[in-house]
């Protein structure tokens, strides 16, 4: 590995592990140079036989990149780092020593997919992992449980689990995840209740003060009765059943044509 790359790598490690918090700006700057260096050394997307030590360093660089992009709330950048890391995690899994950051990063990716409501991708990604890891590994189990609760509708469990995140970085996703479940709950309430007392609505939606709730209610177009302190949900009127004329005509014509061919 070129000496220039080595010094940059050391610089990145210094910036990332700096106390009390890592120097994210510095990280980003160094990472850009490092990525160019990695491409020149043919390590960003390694092919064929490459020195294993170099691969470990390259993986480490990309992992730091993934973490620092989460810390600076840059999800698309995390996405890119994750797809680059896939090569190391899947194709070189047998030859490289396992990384202790692998499962945290995979778990983060799963949480990210959950917050973006990409459930199909979530499951496809999950299939890559062996069953015992899904059941045992805390970093993976967390998003898996979240998904299960979300699908069942046990929203309070999701809410309570937000403090149990296995790694610091998971908390970056908590806010958007809570936004997602709040919207889910709201749409359920619209369907399931006619009206709700303000206080109960606030508990159900996990609001701690009333003004937040009122603002939220306004956004969703709920009727708030302050004197009786209740929320009334606009009932969607019985959907009118219309006969789909166009479609029926088209279908009948198609049948006629087909029958003509047969007879």
């Amino acid at each position: 590995m070129a000496s220039q790359l080595k010094t940059l790598y050391e610089e990145l490690q210094r910036a990332f592990y700096a106390q009390p918090s890592s120097d994210l700006k510095k990280c980003a700057a160094v990472l850009t140079q490092l990525k160019i260096g990695l491409i020149q050394a043919g390590l960003l997307l390694p092919q064929g036989n490459v020195n294993l030590g170099d691969l470990v360093v390259a993986r480490d660089i990309l992992e730091i990149g993934a973490f620092s992009s989460i810390r600076s709330q840059d999800v698309p950048s995390f996405d890119r780092y994750f797809s680059q890391l896939q090569t190391f995690y899947i194709d070189y899994s047998s030859s490289l020593p396992p990384s202790k950051r692998e499962y945290p990063i995979r778990g983060l990716n799963l949480v990210r997919l959950l917050t973006q409501n990409r459930i199909a991708d979530f499951h496809t990604t999950l299939e890559n992992l062996p069953a015992d890891v899904i059941a045992e590994n805390p970093f993976i189990r967390h998003p898996v449980n979240l998904e299960r609760w979300l699908m069942e509708g046990s929203y309070s469990k999701v809410w309570n689990a937000r403090e149990e995140a296995p790694a610091e970085e998971y908390k970056f996703f908590v806010d958007s995840l809570m936004g997602t479940i709040r919207n889910e709950i709201a749409s359920c309430e619209e369907a399931a209740y006619e009206s709700l007392p303000l206080k109960d609505a606030a508990t159900l939606l996990f609001f701690t003060n009333q003004s937040d709730l009122l603002k939220y209610a306004q956004n969703r177009g709920w009727e708030v009765n302050l004197t009786a302190s209740t929320i009334t949900f606009a009932k969607k009127g019985e959907e009118k059943m219309e006969i789909p004329k166009q479609r029926l005509i088209a279908a009948s014509l198609a049948y006629a044509r087909e029958l003509e061919q047969i007879v």
Binding site: G153, S154, S156, I185, S187, C188, A191, A192, Y193, P197
Partner: peptide, 28 residues
């Protein structure tokens, strides 16, 4: 065999929204 009444309320709410059952919850 659900864990809590709170869960049950959310789950039933979701079932109503998803059209699994017809009905509504009277919270009070």
């Amino acid at each position: 065999h659900l864990d809590s009444e709170e869960d049950a309320e959310y789950i039933v709410g979701k079932a109503i929204r998803d059209g699994v059952i017809e009905g509504r919850i009277v919270h009070e």
